[in-house]
């Protein structure tokens, strides 16, 4: 597999949201607007790349029976680093995303990539894999956020172009499920294979 395809496969072929259906909680919860989706995606990307690098470097040294706890500690460490950095330099985003930043620890994408890829590939490949999957995740979250923002508040990336209130249900909980469901239908119909 070429290096470039490691990065691009997350966009469509192995898209973490629409194909692998991983990390659903932040996908649904933080996509009330395109910006929020983008921020959440990038936060996950940060943890994913660092944990992939660390785990691929550590993997040969870790006894098999304790590999899960070790991975969890490594991931939790990077999440905490992210939490501290965001509190210091991006307080607004930290407040908006709230609970879902610490919850990156339990995002199945991160542990999933560690288990499925990083522990049996080189550091460079794992880093590229992290970037690819992370970008795919960011892309899906931004798209979902964009659709919900347009329908729910009549704006895109905070720029309002439809006057009035929009369909509130799309900003609230049900809209998250509906938009993801219908986007998945479109994805299945036009992009898969």
């Amino acid at each position: 597999m070429g290096k470039w395809s490691l990065v691009t496969k997350g966009f469509v072929k192995d898209n973490p949201t629409f194909v692998l259906v991983l990390g659903m909680c932040p996908t649904l919860a933080t996509t009330t607007s395109a910006i929020n989706g983008l921020e959440m995606g990038l936060a996950t990307l940060f943890v994913l790349v660092l944990s992939n690098i660390a785990i691929s470097a550590l993997a040969p040294l870790v006894p098999d029976k304790v590999h899960i706890p070790v991975y969890i500690v490594v991931i939790a460490t990077f999440v905490t680093v992210l939490q501290l950095l965001m509190q210091a330099y991006m307080p607004a985003a930290y407040t908006t995303l709230g609970l879902f930043i610490p919850l990156i620890v339990v995002n199945c994408i991160v542990l999933g990539r560690a288990e499925a890829f990083a522990n049996k590939n080189t550091v460079l490949d794992s880093a590229l894999d992290g970037i690819g999957v992370g970008l795919g995740f960011t892309l899906s979250l931004t798209v979902i956020g964009l659709v919900r923002e347009i329908l729910g508040s009549g704006s895109a990336f905070g720029f309002k172009f439809i006057p009035g209130d929009g369909i509130l249900a799309f900003v609230m909980a049900p809209g998250a499920f509906l938009v993801l469901g219908y986007l998945m239908v479109l994805f299945n119909k036009y992009l898969k294979k």
């Binding site: 550590l58 040969p60 040294l61 870790v62 006894p63 304790v66 070790v70 939790a76």
Partner: peptide, 21 residues
């Protein structure tokens, strides 16, 4: 390819990882 899962190895590994983190 992974190191052997002996008690000593496991303890050592967990302790080290926790310390570094």
């Amino acid at each position: 390819m992974a190191a052997q899962s002996t008690l000593k190895n496991m303890l050592l590994c967990l302790t080290l990882v926790c310390l570094v983190c």
